[in-house]
Amino acid sequence: MLASSSSTSFLQHPLPLALSSKHQPLAKPYFLRFRTHKTVAAACSAATETGQAQRPHLNFPVDQMASAASLYEVLGIPMSASCHEIKTAYRRLARMCHPDVVAINQKEASANDFKKIHAAYSTLSDPVKRACYDREIYGNQRRPYGSSPLSSAAAAAAMAGFPGRTRRNWETDQCW
């Protein structure tokens, strides 16, 4: 709805400026603290639910994306994880990292951790968003199609014929 459409418009933003670099220095220290963590950026950009203005982080150079921890790593699960395993991992991490369960002086750090975990969960627990995300990381890692287990096999099949940047645009159009 609004959230997603607004982020679409962000992509179409006529300004020539690179969006990701533009946002980073915007608000210190808040934006910075939030942004510098690569996992966060990766998680947020893929979490389509969040939409708004997070999308620009997809414009990270490919190798930078690849070096960032994947959403699967955030939740500590294999890429073949079932929906049930994703939910279980999310709950297990929530029990450890939610600000309500940590000591008072760790609340802020844990809030950031939890946002990261939740972003990973909200992407991976939604089959459509997960497929998008899988295509994305597969594209970046340029892995051969056959080697992927389960869900990503479907994703890889879906993106056959859309190499490189073309694929990215196609994926963007479909998901937003």
Binding site: L2, A3, S6, Q52, Q54, P99, A111, K115, H118, S122
Partner: peptide
Amino acid sequence: PIIPRNTTMPARRELA
């Protein structure tokens, strides 16, 4: 809306 209803808390959202 910048933070929509039913957003998991804690939350941070932005809009241009």
